[in-house]
Design a protein around this nucleic acid. Structure first.
Length: 156
DNA sequence: GCCAACGTTGGC
DNA sequence: GCCAACGTTGGC
C-alpha cells in the first residue's frame, strides 16, 4: 500500500483560480507550466493518486490557500512544453524526450481563503516550507501534522 | 514597480 | 566544475 502525501501547490489565480478549477470538466486540471526541476521531481517521483493538495493562490492581491484538492492522475508529459505559442514552450523538449511532466489535480472542496498572513501567525505552521525565507518552490511537501492543523483552520 | 532571494545559463 | 550574469518568483 502506497502512503499518502500532502502538498501545497501554488497557482496564479489569473491563470487558474480555485473557482476556475470548479468549472472544468471533472473539476480537474493538468498542473501545467512547472519549469523547476525540484517541483517537477515531486510530481514525477513522489506524488501518488489521492495525495492531498492545498491549492494556494500566489502572485496576487490576496495570497493564501483557497481550497482542497487531490492528485487525480499521475505525472505525464506537460503538453505546453511542445506548443510554440505557449509561454511555457521549451525548445529543448521533444516528444521523444520531454523535459516537463505534470500531474492532474481535482477539486475536493472550496474553503475560505486562509491568508498568507494567517499562516504566518499560526504557531503550529511555522515549519511550513512555503513560509521559509527565500522559498521559491511552487510545490512543497506538507507534513501530516501540518495538514491536520490546516484542515482545522480551513474548515473552521 | 521594487527588490530579495534563488535557479539557470554559458563562457572559460 | 566554477561562477558571474541574468532571469524569475512573489510578497509588498
Amino acid at each position: 500500500m502506497t502512503e499518502t502525501h500532502y502538498w501545497l501547490m501554488k497557482s496564479e489565480p489569473s491563470e487558474v483560480s480555485f473557482d476556475n478549477l470548479l468549472t472544468l470538466a471533472n473539476q480537474e486540471v493538468a498542473w501545467f507550466g512547472v519549469r523547476n526541476y525540484q517541483a517537477r521531481n515531486f510530481m514525477m517521483r513522489d506524488m501518488v493518486l489521492g495525495d492531498g493538495v492545498l491549492f494556494y493562490h500566489s502572485n496576487c492581491a490576496a495570497p493564501g490557500i483557497a481550497g482542497l484538492a487531490r492528485v487525480s492522475r499521475l505525472a505525464e508529459p506537460d503538453a505546453t512544453q511542445f506548443d510554440p505559442l505557449s509561454p511555457y514552450f521549451d525548445p529543448k523538449a521533444t516528444l521523444e524526450h520531454p523535459r516537463w511532466h505534470c500531474v492532474h489535480v481535482q477539486a475536493v472542496k472550496k474553503t475560505r481563503l486562509l491568508t498568507l498572513a494567517e499562516l504566518r501567525q499560526t504557531p503550529d505552521l511555522q515549519t511550513l516550507r512555503v513560509l521559509a525565507k527565500g522559498n521559491r518552490l511552487s510545490i512543497t511537501p506538507v507534513t501530516l501534522q501540518e495538514w491536520k492543523t490546516l484542515q482545522d483552520l480551513l474548515l473552521r
